[in-house]
Design a protein around this nucleic acid. Structure first.
Lengths: 103, 103
DNA sequence: AGCATATATCAAGAATAATTGATATATCAA
DNA sequence: TTGATATATCAATTATTCTTGATATATGCT
């Protein structure tokens, strides 16, 4: 039996990444943390739309936020992407479940 | 600007993986190629459901199929997972676009 | 030929996700 | 305090994905 918990987390990450706007946001965050207003400017997208996608990314653990005055700054948490990368590696090698561990 | 084509392919893979039944199918294919009837047996799921998910996986390039008589055998193409793993690595490192290549 | 089996596909409905415009809340500045 | 700005959230709509039961197609067996 495979680890349902780990798979559930991976699925959250996968879903979060599988969307063009969210990828755009992630790429925008590479040059450092940004407030929502920065992201609105860079992308030209509606504020509620940006906030919606930021929430999905945040709930998947791909970004974190911090408030400062009126602004909320978002930044990448690359550890989650690293975990996902590792999960895919295990999936690929067939050692996702404890019964057949990676050597 | 990032590579829209590569991102589109990655999104197909991500979407395909982000579903529990499809993960179950992938894991079942680790012990070798299987016909649809094997997968129905192992999972207990309806045939049309299995076929639906196999199609998604196939269109994403994660599995391939081969017909033999009345049976269609599916197997993993781990190269696609390897590509995805690499894509995530690049995303994580911020070198997905040509403008900032990985060192 | 006739029948059974394996699989794909389709249409309808259900469930989930995304978009949009509006409103609410909090913070700062004047 | 008043007004402006930043962000979140909500309700309604639209779009996408998944499920289900039915039917179609192909293959092989008798």
């Amino acid at each position: 039996m495979s680890s349902g918990v780990a798979n559930a987390k991976a699925i959250d990450s996968l879903k979060a990444l599988a969307e063009p706007i969210r990828l755009e946001i992630i790429e925008a965050l590479f040059t450092g943390e940004k407030c929502v207003c920065d992201l609105i400017q860079e992308t030209g997208l509606a504020q509620s739309k940006i906030s919606f996608h930021l929430k999905v990314l945040k709930e998947a653990g791909i970004i974190t936020d911090r408030q400062s005055g009126r602004w909320v700054y978002y930044q990448l948490d690359t550890r989650t992407l690293k975990s996902l990368q590792n999960w895919i590696k295990k999936l690929r090698k067939g050692c996702l479940n404890e019964a057949s561990p990676c050597e």
